[in-house]
Amino acid sequence: MTIKNRLAVELPGLNMKNPIMNSSGAVYFGLDESYDIEKAGALVTKTVTLAERSGNPQPWTVELPGGLLNSVGLANPGIHNVLKKFLPAIKAKYGDELPVMVSIAGETVDEYVTLTQLLTDTQYLTAIEVNLSCPNVDRGGMAFGVSAESASEVIAAVRQVTNLPIYAKLSPNVTDIKPIAKAVEAAGANGIVLINTVIGMSLDLHKRQPKLARGTGGLSGKAIHPIAVRLVYEAAQTVSIPIIGVGGIETVADALELMMAGASAVQVGAALTYNTHVMSNIIEAIPGALDNYHFDTIQELTRTFK
């Protein structure tokens, strides 16, 4: 069996040569040569909103012993610039060799629908990641992804206007992930991305104020990996659609652990901030790891922990 066949993973809209991709925001739009994007199984874009956003006040990030605390605020060029400039550039660079999943976010259901319609009318992507961690302005600012009702409402609305595969990106900042995972599956999601960042805060003792301008931020990195493993496992026991695991992946062992818990593929995020070659390093290490743990193919590993 060739290495290519051992590592291949086929998910709705994501026919991947290996199970490794970046997480949204980690490589912006994937046009920087330093991240070895061409070696990855798929590319996930920066989360896109209807209007251009400059993001939250600086500073955006704080490095902590266990990871990275960030409050970027979905800074992005807006959907029309993405359609006109960034997606054509991705197509020109990678052609049809790399599946592309565009991440979207809105503050209302209608915004998600409009973004989906605009993307569906192009030929530049193969799947849509629906980021449900945005505040729902129609309901007092509560994030869409923290309730089964609001999460499924978005997914059902998006499902009505596109034939593209859609992946619901769920939040870990909930009491129980299982009803939310079940709800987005019932609403028409083709897959789930889990987890997003964990809400945290870090204080400057000298200034007696938060280190992030906004106060709280999303924690990513090694510290959240055990949380990701638990939530992926719980979701995998609840749904039959594929799960893409994300959270604290720095090594091939981290990736395989999330897959054993229930993920069919994984995303790498915070680790790319200090090692731009981490994805290619993990990909190169997979065949040896499969041999070590006695698996013929990467797909055999998924959901092997029951």
Rank of each mutant, 00 (worst) to 15 (best):
M1K: 10
N5D: 08
R6C: 01
V9T: 13
N15P: 01
N15H: 09
K17E: 01
N18F: 08
M21P: 00
M21I: 04
S24C: 03
G25K: 00
V27G: 00
G30V: 00
I37F: 05
T45V: 07
T45K: 00
K46R: 08
T47P: 03
G55P: 01
W60Y: 11
E63G: 02
E63T: 09
S71Q: 00
S71P: 02
G73Y: 12
N76V: 10
P77F: 11
G78Y: 03
I79S: 01
I79F: 05
H80C: 11
V82F: 06
L83V: 01
K84H: 09
K84M: 08
F86L: 07
K91D: 12
Y94H: 06
D96W: 08
V102R: 04
E107G: 11
D110K: 12
D110M: 05
Y112T: 13
D121P: 02
Y124W: 07
I128Y: 12
I128L: 09
I128V: 07
V130R: 01
N131I: 00
A143W: 04
F144A: 01
G145Y: 07
S150K: 07
A151P: 07
E153H: 06
V154G: 03
V158E: 07
R159F: 07
R159Y: 14
V161P: 00
V161M: 02
T162C: 01
N163K: 11
L164A: 03
P165S: 01
P165G: 06
P172G: 12
P172I: 03
P172C: 14
T175H: 15
D176E: 10
A181R: 01
A187Q: 05
N190Y: 06
V193D: 08
N196E: 11
T197G: 09
L203M: 15
L205F: 14
H206F: 14
Q209K: 15
A213R: 12
A213K: 11
R214S: 15
G215Y: 12
S220R: 05
G221K: 03
A223I: 08
I224W: 08
A228Y: 05
A228K: 04
V232K: 09
Y233V: 14
E234I: 06
V239S: 11
I243D: 14
G245H: 07
V252R: 04
D254K: 09
A255M: 05
E257K: 13
M259V: 09
M260N: 02
A263H: 04
V266Y: 00
A270Y: 04
T273F: 15
N281G: 15
I282T: 10
E284H: 13
A285L: 06
P287A: 09
L290I: 14
N292Y: 15
F295L: 06
F305E: 14
K306D: 11
